[in-house]
Amino acid sequence: MNPFDYHRAEDAAGAAALVADNPAAAFLAGGTNLVDRMKLGVTAPDTLVDITHLPMDEVEELPEGGLRIGANVRNSEAAAHPLVRTRYPVLSQALLSGASGQLRNAATTGGNLLQRTRCVYFQDLSTPCNKREPGSGCSALEGYQRYHAVFGASPDCVATHPSDMAVALAALDAQAVVQDAAAERRIPVSRLHRLPGEAPERDTVLAHGDLITAVELPAMPMAARARYRKIRDRASFAFALVSAAAAMELAEDGTVADARIALGGVAHKPWRARLAEEALIGAAATGHDFAAAAEAELAEARPLPGNTFKLPLVRAAITTTLGEVADGVRGRGAGPDQGEGER
């Protein structure tokens, strides 16, 4: 790790300016991914601006029934917050399925969004990686692909975004509140992260120095019955192979009036499954319809030789999560998939 200067930021705009002015500066929040990358040599800032003492650590109600979660709210606090649990349990579930208790106590809302891929080649300086070193090549294209993308990848990068939280936020139409040196703006979480295209070194649409100060969740009644399902190899403390966040609202005739589906572990960004959502609207909300919705989304899938198994997993993630949501919406309580401790 290279030496660096350490500053404690006094205010958000000042922090943004400090980083914006120095291409080699970085914000430090919980540090659970940044310090990890610095040890690996993947990231080598010469200045760290510690934002954890900025007053961005509250969960507040918004006027129309939404919630604002400060960027410094720790993942564990967000997951345990009574308003998050009751209004957006899918967000609590997603947060709690990520990392470990210790990491969730340090990791922040903003930092979780901006964590970087865990692609083994990205993290290994001895191998080529376009994201780490543009133009060097993508080692994963013909390498180890278990955790890699099946949607929206490019010949330059097949990495996935590792966050669980961001998947739930994408489904919930959340917006990131972004501060730069001059002003504040809002970006939908589903459009915050990019697809790799020809510039995989850029994870998000943010400019250097942009600081996420909060995440805002709009009021969404169907979110109270939304659910998150994470499929992984280890029973806990493992990144998703595939995950799904889903919300659904049924009309009086039992057909689907509205739906939100986002997938994790499948793309360079939390993957909003809009084709599946469209296919669901007006459908009868049966297992058959859920499978058809999954197929609609899978039409866009382009698996790699080493992760073709993710296609049936996507299908399973969508159908089981929608099934669970439908059971809840219809008042049947927990679906068959709710064995204790088996998530």
Partner: peptide, 19 residues
């Protein structure tokens, strides 16, 4: 954390959502 009422990924989803 348990004494503070914090849920976990093993908490049944309905219990989690009911707080």
């Amino acid at each position: 954390e348990a004494a503070a009422g914090w849920p976990s990924a093993a908490t049944p989803p309905d219990d989690l959502a009911e707080g």
